[in-house]
Nucleic acid binder design. Structure first.
Lengths: 263, 263
DNA sequence: TTCGGCTGTGAAAATCCTGTGAACGCAGGG
DNA sequence: CCCTGCGTTCACAGGATTTTCACAGCCGAA
């Protein structure tokens, strides 16, 4: 298992001894790390594309709970680990309920801190794992992850980065309906604000570019009230090629045992 | 959609004091819990459909590491929390690297244990969002959660989102009579206004669409003065045939009242 | 059998959702 | 400094969906 993907960690702490020791180890392990001695706006955390955030709330003072809450809401995929000195059960429970993933007491061994950060980050990676495989072909479309671009024949679709990421996400989940919130969450990397229409706009741009290069195919289907589904279909008269019982060759066909142990 | 999904927990521990106190709290919180005082084969854990497993490795003796490893490998989506007495940093690190999600030291406050279990389940649920639930088959019907749609053969029923959610709710409670208030509460997410007929209207739409695609079956039954019950039956005189999904337990049809506590 | 309340039904009315074009702000390059 | 490409936001129009309503048919009890 590929548990050893690089971890991008930010540390908010001003306990220099602790941070120094920890940094030495994370560096050895090949993690990418950024140390901050005071809070930065959650919006800036977004741009850092982190896997995990380690922080000592004493740095933040009164704002700590508030800050934790905002960070956890804005970045539901971010692993948040609190590492601090004395704390009460009530504080730990409050933090954990608020969205913190783990709460460690200082003093603590840096190796354990790292193991806990890994444990928290572990889950996220499963989905991204298989995307390194060569060019993916769907319909007339060829998606090349290495070029951040998609082609029809040898003509590029001229996708921008966001457009490409959206297409890739949809294509990876071929046949599945993805809700807007889920799409936004995974492409933009943080929670979608209520009423945001960005996903719709990018879907339109994608459709335009797809239509332009591959007019006889339909790739993106709207599910009213739900979201979008990627499934290449020829629009023309030649036979429909998939009903819902679609071909199972997609690499993500997972068998689920229907053991109904009701209770 | 409810963020507070019920937690299904198994506890492997023979520290009766700890288990008793914890059980009392989890019960109050509406969790489903199973206490075991010794290890059971990982294969049996699968059938229990757990969210989380809490265990004290001292119960397992020498086999502990082995057991942990097998459980984590076999059930990658299960949240595993170790709660035990004295332990070394090395042991904790080993456990966490092996796949354990959290490691708590006894003695500990049950509230914190619960908060940590919740934190682990929360993360777990998020990472596998949407996938995983295989198609459910009832009668001629195939209900696909990943598509927000139901099919008969390869024909879609063209359900809208609400229709689908209603069908899914009914099918999940197959054989049970659901009161209107309970249905409304769960599908619409808030309390039904007195005199609201929405549920009836949607039942009709569902019946129409079911009838259209699967004319020889009856799925939704009315219980006068009470509510509705989902139970696929062939309308024709020929014998009962059962969907491949599961045995038909047409046993006692119990009314489910609108208490929405456990949810 | 009759009556009062419950449920089925069709359609109108109200609401919500999505597609779309365009304006806006921002950043990098010329 | 202006231009260009990109991402975001807004408002509006056309549909799809949901809610509401009135009425007819059905059920169970007296």
């Amino acid at each position: 298992m590929n548990t050893q993907q690089t971890i991008r960690l930010a540390v908010i702490d001003n306990d220099s001894g602790f941070v120094t020791v920890l940094s030495k180890r994370t560096e050895t392990a090949g993690w990418q790390q950024r140390v901050l001695s005071s809070a930065i706006p959650p919006e800036e955390l977004v741009a850092m594309k982190l896997n995990a955030l380690l922080l000592d709330p004493t740095v933040l003072g009164e704002e700590a709970w508030n800050y934790l809450e905002r960070v956890c809401a804005l970045l539901p995929d971010l692993g948040v680990i609190v590492c601090t000195g004395r704390s009460t059960v009530a504080q730990r429970v409050r933090g954990l309920r608020l969205g913190v993933d783990d709460w460690i007491a200082k003093p603590c061994h840096p190796e354990e801190v790292m193991a806990r950060i890994e444990a928290v980050s572990r889950r996220r990676r499963r989905s991204r794992a298989g995307t390194e495989t060569g060019p993916v072909v769907v319909g007339e479309l060829e998606i090349r992850a290495d070029q951040f671009q998609a082609f029809v024949g040898d003509g590029s679709l001229d996708l921008t980065r966001r457009e490409f990421e959206l297409l890739q996400l949809l294509a990876d989940a071929k046949g599945q309906v993805l809700e807007r919130e889920a799409i936004y969450q995974r492409v933009w990397g943080y929670a979608m604000a209520h009423g945001d229409r960005s996903v719709d706009v990018f879907i339109r741009k994608l459709r335009q570019k797809l239509e332009k290069r591959s007019p006889s195919w339909r790739y993106i289907h709207t599910h009213f009230g739900v979201g979008y589904r990627f499934d290449p279909e020829t629009g023309a008269g030649s036979g429909q090629q998939l009903g819902p019982g679609e071909p199972a060759e997609a690499e993500d066909s997972q068998v689920v045992h229907s053991s109904f142990t009701a209770g």
